[in-house]
Design a binder for these strands. Structure first.
Length: 783
RNA sequence: GCCCAGGUGGCGGAAUGGUAUACGCGCAGGACUCAAAAUCCUGUGGCCGCAAGGUCUUGUGGGUUCGAGUCCCACCCUGGGCACCA
């Protein structure tokens, strides 16, 4: 018996090096016969390094991919860095570094860490979003949207983060706060670039029914899209040519509408002949100053102002009713005006109470009929708004647009309604982000690039006159909205001339499995679907849903709370990898709870996995027992369980099954066959150890390219089963019985049991329920 | 307020409507050791009992069923998401 120690550190380093040199995880991108694209959300290297939560996510995805590879698929598991954008820039600001230099440092660090976790990454196809070779195509994506009328510029009230000093998309404002830094977002009226995601709203919603995604993520997208069906009803204004269109989902309450409310920003406010103009304008101004957060902080007490001198007419009962403006009505939803029904709507009731308005007790009517009677029109509204792309920051993809004063004055331009604006010609891409010493956000609604004349000076692509480049950069979520399309084409010869190679794309898409965090439900996962639909419609992609199967992993918490630096409970994987090894950490993370559930990281129980892998090591140090094998049935049961558990992302129970098998191998001994099969089952979870023991068994090729074991259904069960005998549903005995016995045989066996006999003697048997190969239940008459 | 997910031993968790508590952690006792660590063995939900055994137990209360952690109804609690969207 050898007593060689399990030197995980040497073993893991050895195999990581060998796999890389042997290109073990590099599929043949052009010739693969059974492509399987196993994609995981790439990390943003914003902080000190990889988070144990990243490792949790990557390991879970990798296990699935490793099994697929062993099932004969050509698995492609790429990795990269989402290193452009506010998160990386904020980190650079915090540590006083320049983001362009810091990116290189973070890159080295992240790639080192990502190498150490033992995933089957296809390193040759890695990409970084801040690489001009990559963002050249991000700009190209922008240009395509522009050319097809899906990118436009518009002045409107937008979210502004006073700390990040930039505008934000609606999706990046969480409960009134900036998604990145947590500052309260303000509203500002600014001219910005938008993507017309709302054009795709119907498909974004309808396709959710067709894709296999974690249900909670689908629900989040549905809520965010916020479809509601209702009616558009016209309220004319007494003695006036004007009228107000309102949107309501409850036309059946029309008789109870006792006043009308406009959003403070509603255009009619300026037009109507209002008597108390000064008072109204004061309210409009006050409302404009308020941030979302302010409004929430006020406890939603209703404020507003009556528009004196005008009255609206309820089209149902022809009554004259007052008109108000109030900030509880949003300018950006519906028509920016509502009919108020204080009897049926809580918000209207609150407002009516604050302003002492009468509440009507008019009964409900048939909504369909009343809409017809008053000449209303059925309409569907969505809460989803267009995607705000501009950011007044430095560290991002420059928006590839040029504005020409001369053309604007002459009304010339590339797109209707956008005089003076031209896309940078595609052959001139990328518009490279220049190194700028003072990259800090300025807070004046302009990017730092607006202070760099050598950057913004350009010639107009239309007329050749001196013109000015757009100086804002694009939202980071644009970088990640198409990255998955680039991976397989990064090394393609044609990848120099086109963003994604059509032949390779046809072969590898759509992505077979996408794994990532649920926190991106309405951010990344919505944008990426939108961009895919656009390129599908433009004929560049053969699919419109990029990820037919998506699984959200659970959240890994620590000490009962979400890991965060301020709480000081962030777990760094490095120390665990150096102390226990990547295989132990991988298995520990996967063992603590179901993958889709997440769990609490406690190092106390990591010892169980340490013991397990050391036991496995020990088993393989001892010789095998030869041909006759007592473990065949346990083995086949384990193969079945591990196979189906991996498919269902239930890695915790798969590991438990492996433990049971290993325990039996240690006590009963195991043959070569059992050992080989065991190592294969272990390989996705502990790839280094499995590979090492595989080699020591005399194999010269990688276990990760071996065939996944198959089970024999006939061997999954024992010949006997424990027959549970119940009397009135209470267990009285357990008898070893032959599988497949008939009811009368089981009954005979059961009656022969002394305790059962005693229980049956107490009454008369009414019925006997027999569940094959499981239990028999005597139901007594007395009950 | 609305929408999800969940509530099971001291802890993480396991259970196609069919032996609740698999697997692991922890704990207790034992073996090995001069000793410790490591390892191995045994035990480990509560209550009653010397024991055999009995009995109760999956957030609470009802229901369906021969049989409910699992299905139905009501409620309580925790975590997450959305939130003045008409």
């Amino acid at each position: 018996m050898s007593s060689e120690r399990y030197d995980f550190s040497a073993i893991e380093k050895k195999w990581q090096k060998r796999w890389f040199a042997d290109r073990t995880y590099e599929p043949d991108l052009t010739g693969a016969e059974k492509p399987f694209y196993n994609l995981m959300m790439f990390p943003y290297p914003s902080a000190e390094g990889l988070h144990v939560g990243n490792m949790y996510a990557f390991t879970g995805a990798d296990i699935y991919g490793r099994k697929k590879r062993m099932e004969g698929y050509d698995v492609f598991e790429p990795i990269g860095l989402d290193g452009f954008g506010i998160h990386s820039e904020n980190y650079a600001l915090k540590i006083g570094a320049h983001p362009m230099k810091q990116a290189k440092i973070s890159e080295t660090r992240f790639y080192e860490q990502l190498s150490a976790i033992g995933n089957g990454f296809a390193w040759e196809e890695k990409l970084e979003t801040y690489d001009p070779k990559y963002y050249r195509w991000t700009q190209w994506v922008f240009v395509q949207l522009w050319k097809h009328g899906l990118a436009y510029r518009k002045k409107q009230a937008v979210n502004w983060c006073p700390s990040c000093k930039t505008v934000l998309a609606d999706e990046q404002v969480i409960a009134g706060k900036c998604e990145r830094c947590g500052s309260e977002a303000e509203m500002k009226n600014l001219e910005q670039w938008f993507f017309r995601i709302t054009k795709y709203v119907d498909r974004l919603l309808a396709n959710l029914e067709k894709i296999d995604w974690s249900e909670r993520v689908k629900i989040a997208q549905r809520n965010w899209i916020g479809k509601s069906e209702g009616a558009l009803i016209k309220f004319s204004i007494f003695n006036s040519p004007f009228s107000i269109d309102v949107f309501t989902t409850r036309p059946d309450t029309l008789y109870g509408a006792t006043y009308v409310v406009l959003a403070p920003e509603h255009p009619l406010v300026a037009t109507l002949p209002i008597k108390n103009r000064a008072e109204v304008e004061q309210y409009v101004k006050a409302a404009a100053r308020k941030s979302e957060a302010d409004r929430i902080a006020e406890g939603r007490e209703k404020t507003g102002a009556e528009l004196k001198g005008v009255k609206a007419i309820n089209p149902a009962n022809k009554e004259e009713i007052p008109i108000f403006i109030a900030d509880y009505v949003l300018a950006t939803y519906g028509t920016g005006a509502i009919m108020a029904v204080p009897a049926h709507d809580e918000r209207d009731r609150d407002f009516a109470r604050a302003f002492d308005l009468p509440v009507s007790d008019a009964p409900l009517v048939d909504g369909r009929k009343v809409v017809k009677e008053v000449g209303g029109k059925w309409e569907t509204n969505f809460r989803l708004r267009d995607w705000l792309i501009s950011r007044q920051r430095y560290w991002g993809v420059p928006i590839p647009m040029i504005f020409c004063e001369a053309c604007a004055a002459a009304g010339k331009g590339e797109q209707k309604g956008m005089p003076g604006w031209y896309a940078v010609p595609e052959e001139e891409l990328p518009v490279e982000l220049p190194y700028v010493e003072d990259f800090r956000p300025k807070g004046k609604g302009e990017s730092p690039l607006a202070s760099a004349p050598e950057f913004y000076r350009a010639k107009c692509p239309g007329c050749g006159a001196d013109a000015r480049r757009e100086t804002d950069v694009s939202d980071t979520f644009l970088d990640s909205a198409w990255y998955y399309l680039r991976y397989p084409s990064t090394r393609s010869v044609r990848g120099e001339q086109i963003p994604w190679d059509p032949a390779i794309t046809k072969k590898w898409f759509p992505v077979n499995l996408y794994t990532g965090g649920a926190e991106h439900s309405v951010l990344h996962l919505l944008y990426v679907r939108f961009i895919a639909m656009v390129f599908h419609d433009l004929g560049f992609l053969h699919f419109e849903e990029p990820f037919p199967k998506f699984r959200a992993h659970g959240l890994l918490i620590s000490e009962g709370a979400k890991m965060s630096k301020s709480k000081g409970n962030v777990v760094n994987p490095d120390e665990y990898i150096s102390k226990y090894g990547a295989d132990v950490l991988r298995m520990y993370l996967m063992f603590l709870a179901p993958f889709e559930q997440g769990g609490d990281f406690r190092d106390a129980s990591i010892q169980g996995i340490v013991r397990f892998l050391e036991r496995v090591w020990r088993i393989f140090q001892n010789g095998s027992v030869g041909e006759r094998d007592p473990l065949m049935r346990t083995l086949h049961r384990t193969i079945k369980k591990v196979t189906s558990d991996i498919e269902a992302f239930q890695y915790n129970t798969a590991i438990s099954a492996l433990m049971i098998l290993a325990n039996e191998m240690e006590t009963a001994g195991s043959s070569e066959d059992v050992r080989e099969a065991f190592l294969k089952l272990l390989a996705p979870f502990a790839p280094h150890l499995a590979e090492e023991l595989w080699e020591r068994m005399g194999h010269t090729t990688s276990i990760h390219r071996e065939k996944w074991p198959l089970y024999d259904e006939a061997l999954v069960h024992e010949d006997t089963f424990p027959l549970v005998v119940q009397v009135n549903g209470r267990r009285r005995a357990t008898i070893e019985a032959t599988r497949g016995i008939m009811k009368h045989e089981a009954e005979e066996l059961a009656r022969a049991d002394e305790k059962v006999g005693r229980a049956l003697a107490e009454g008369e048997v009414k019925t006997v329920v027999y569940v094959k190969d499981r239990l028999i239940n005597f139901v007594m008459k007395s009950i």
